[in-house]
């Protein structure tokens, strides 16, 4: 091949890669632009603070917004301690190089590859039917209390789904804490737990929060796991107990898009709901990033 052809190829390839990059950016811009432009029209304080009315053709999304935040908070409360403890055990306590540890680690990583709908069905079978019904039988004389789809079960199912994210991210940061730091702690008379608590965990806060951010964004976006475990099609009231169903934004979007009696009347609401969902996800991410950088600064300053 002569020089000119090579030149041409090289240019062509540059063009192709640039085009690929551009189409990606353009795609995101289009989606965001469409959502923002159309969504802003209907967005108002009233929209975010009232419940849907007349078959979702009027009113707002407050119950869904509330449900989403509540759900994600519950999920975080469940997944962070569990995930962080698991990572600490695997990295700090379990015998290094043991076959069982490798197996467990592999299982956790494979958990991340399980389709979300499978988690939904598992949640229904395990949490709702097995755990929930079990609780009812033993503590409530069989009266239906926990043996039904509920925000508790939905958040636990989501926690299971996001567990690998937290475990992997935490393990990653535990691993980079230098061995020399651990030895210093031991040489000063630390027990293993004291070493973990005083030396390893403070340096791992970053990674734990990164894992939490990822888990929160993923959890806030998933519909399938909560479909059978607690998300409600329509609920005129807010969940006040852990065993109640709840509305949630992303499921609400689906419901509005497919089940509305009057598509044209619902469409503007739909746009605004999507916009709110996006803003909420960004806000959650942003909050976590701020917390993280604060903690990092505090750690650097040596508190």
């Amino acid at each position: 091949m002569n020089r000119r052809w090579i030149d041409l190829f090289s240019r062509l390839f540059t063009l192709l890669t640039a085009l690929a990059c551009f189409s990606l950016v353009a795609g995101v811009a289009l989606i965001l632009g469409d959502v923002v432009l159309n969504g802003l029209k209907h967005l108002s304080w009233e929209f975010v603070s009232t419940a849907p009315k007349t078959g979702m053709t009027e009113g707002g999304i407050f119950p869904a917004l509330f449900g989403t935040v509540f759900l994600v908070l519950l999920m975080t409360v469940a997944v962070v301690p569990l995930g962080v403890s698991t990572a600490i055990y695997l990295q700090e306590y379990a015998p290094a190089g043991s076959r069982w540890v490798k197996l467990i680690r592999m299982a956790i990583q494979n958990l991340a590859g399980v389709p979300a709908i499978v988690f939904g069905l598992f949640g229904l079978g395990f949490f709702v039917d097995f755990v929930g019904k079990g609780i009812d039988r033993f503590f409530f004389d069989g009266a239906l209390t926990f043996g039904q789809p509920a925000i508790l079960w939905a958040s636990l199912t989501l926690a299971l789904l996001t567990l690998p994210t937290v475990v992997v991210a935490t393990e990653e940061t535990l691993r980079v804490v230098p061995r020399s730091h651990r030895e210093v702690a031991y040489s000063l008379g630390a027990t293993r737990w004291q070493m973990v608590r005083r030396v390893v965990l403070p340096q791992a806060v970053n990674g734990i929060l990164t894992g939490t951010i990822l888990a929160v964004s993923r959890g806030a976006g998933e519909v399938a796991p909560i479909l059978f475990t607690g998300a409600a099609y329509y609920l005129p009231y807010l969940p006040t107990h852990l065993n109640q169903q709840f509305m949630v934004l992303n499921y609400h979007v689906y419901v509005m898009a497919t089940q509305s009696p009057d598509v044209d009347a619902t469409l503007p609401l739909l746009y605004s709901t999507v916009l709110v969902l996006l803003m909420l996800t960004f806000a959650l991410n942003f909050a976590a990033i701020i917390i993280r950088s604060r903690l990092r600064r505090r750690l650097k300053a040596g508190r």
């Binding site: 020399s180 210093v184 702690a185 040489s187 000063l188 008379g189 650097k300 040596g302």
Partner: peptide
């Protein structure tokens, strides 16, 4: 007590580095 080959201050303040051993007892 032991001092290692490479200086290993932990990412803490000078005071907290010094206090570290006392926190373990």
């Amino acid at each position: 007590g032991m001092v290692f080959a490479l200086p290993t201050p932990l990412p803490l303040s000078i005071r907290d580095n010094l206090r570290l051993g006392l926190r373990f007892q």
